[in-house]
Design a protein around this nucleic acid. Structure first.
Lengths: 299, 299
DNA sequence: GCATTCGAATAACATGGCATTATTCGATGG
DNA sequence: CCATCGAATAATGCCATGTTATTCGAATGC
């Protein structure tokens, strides 16, 4: 019926007292205001102003309407702010599900930075296996999944977010730290921490040993790179971890060396095709990629 | 920034699920809805729907915005209702100031009818002399004044609202009731109730006696026609009252006769030129006129 | 008393938002 | 494979809202 613009003009004229003044405030021409007022009066069938001595005097009705319109403006501003917030990702909710390797490794750092300009963003982080990631995504309970291994599932889309590789982590001063590059098969000669053969990381490492016709030997088996990293940092032995796990952290107690052969790992973002991806999730993907790009690569 | 219309379309599409359906609900064409959605997405830079299997799936952001928009719609409806109410005069406040003759006579009947379709209208009725009416109007405390005598005052406008005349009221069976018409000067011959010479009504009646070269004689002097009417109805004597005082009332105990000469009286509506007249006051004037027109004239 | 000034109204015209109809494209289902 | 349904696109129209230029009326000041 009555437009927000009309109310805006009405209020401006009432506040300022003249059409010319209101026009200036609203950054439009004086006739625009004049026409709008007349049009409004015709439309609603009420006298809003009386022309007296060349001035406009608001009627009681006009004052009443203007008063009520304030509440409308409040709501309008509120909606606009919310839209801006959603667009900028400063409000809303981001539900992440990630593998523990990522969740204990790089994710906390990324999230810390991501949340800095978005204090009002609701955050949810779940850790789980690839199967659990798939389950949460297809059921719509999570907006985005983060995984090294790329789940194959109809209804899920994966995109590479960051390229990295496995690196060898050894206590500072360890014999393997003397060379610039660590041969994967050489790990058999030292006390080293590795991954179960049925895990994706274990299979990747195993492939190298199989290629070389050697059996992998390790004294300790863990599930997650973060665990392996902490054990290595504690001087327990040598470990292979993904480069993301050590990204951007200064750790004087450990040395980091690339491996031979190179074992590339990729962090994948996984989203559901069954539900629209939240804008904030898309932004988070971008942010994640840029964060990894910008972070100091492992020495 | 974002228009109410756009939000309306957004909500419709989300609720109905298809652009075609939303178009039907909104009574517009399907392309109109389609274009609006696209335009909105361009404008705010957010994906609101994902096109999937030929259908529209709202994004979480779209759902969030739609939710907030509901409050805006509430306010919009509220403002519209208020405007309608002001236009129809069902809300607002009507401040009336009237002379006692009117205030005790016809006004209550008129107001009773006027208020029936306007149960939420605030009403204020003050009674006072013509001077007091003037004072209240020029000070802006009353919206409209009702008076038989027409106040002369710069800043006040008067308009005739109802034409009537003085009528003679006598107890049923009174000798004057025998004739179809009562000569004013004949009142001197019966016990009659009249008005002080300094009052407008008194002067009007006096003028007839002066014209005839007769001195007015009466046994009782009152100020208001309503008092005179009640006294006459009680059988105390004969009185001249304005025709409005007996308008629309069946009173078997009294007889009403026109006078000779005719003594016309007019109810005037008085409004201030210093303030805009409230729409409700204008409507009341119209209503008053029509009420008097439509009411059964005194027999 | 007359010119100036200020504000409102009007005229004539431009533009963009939002609508229309007609048509095409893509997916789904018998 | 075709019929159907829904969305998108194209071509177009109208009206709300804006513009500039001008006029009109009232108040003001010399």
């Amino acid at each position: 019926m009555i437009s927000a613009r009309q109310l805006e003009v009405l209020c401006a004229v009432i506040e300022v007292g003249t059409t010319s003044g209101a026009a200036e405030v609203l950054s439009v021409s004086q006739p625009a205001v004049s026409n709008m007022i007349r049009h409004m009066e015709d439309q609603i069938g009420l006298s809003l102003f009386v022309r007296e001595r060349g001035r406009l005097e608001p009627t009681p009705e006009a004052l009443h309407i203007a008063q009520e319109a304030q509440h409308l403006f409040m709501q309008q501003k509120r909606v606009d702010k919310i839209i801006m917030g959603l667009k900028g990702g400063t409000i809303g909710r981001l539900n992440i599900v990630a593998t523990p390797s990522i969740g204990y490794g790089i994710l906390p750092q990324v999230l810390a930075e991501f949340m800095k300009p978005r204090p009002r963003l609701q955050l949810s982080v779940e850790l789980g296996s690839v199967d659990e990631i798939v389950e949460r995504l297809v059921s719509g309970r999570s907006d985005i999944g983060l995984s090294i291994t790329r789940p194959r599932h109809t209804g899920l889309s994966t995109r590479p977010m960051a390229e990295g590789q496995m690196v060898c982590v050894c206590p500072a001063g360890h014999e393997l730290a003397l060379s610039q590059q660590v041969r994967v098969v050489d790990l058999n000669h030292v006390q080293h921490i590795s991954y179960a053969a049925h895990t994706p990381l274990g299979q990747m490492v195993d492939a190298v040993f199989v290629e070389a016709g050697i059996e992998r030997r390790f004294f300790c088996e863990v599930r997650h790179t973060s665990t392996a990293l902490e054990m290595a940092a504690s001087g327990l032995g040598v470990a292979l971890v993904d480069s993301f796990a050590v990204l951007g952290r200064h750790r004087p107690e450990i040395a980091i060396r690339p491996t031979h052969p190179r074992l590339p790992v990729t962090v994948h973002a996984v989203t559901s095709n069954l539900f629209p991806t939240a804008n904030i999730a898309i932004r988070f993907q971008q942010f994640f990629s840029e964060f990894v790009q910008g972070a100091t690569p492992p020495a």
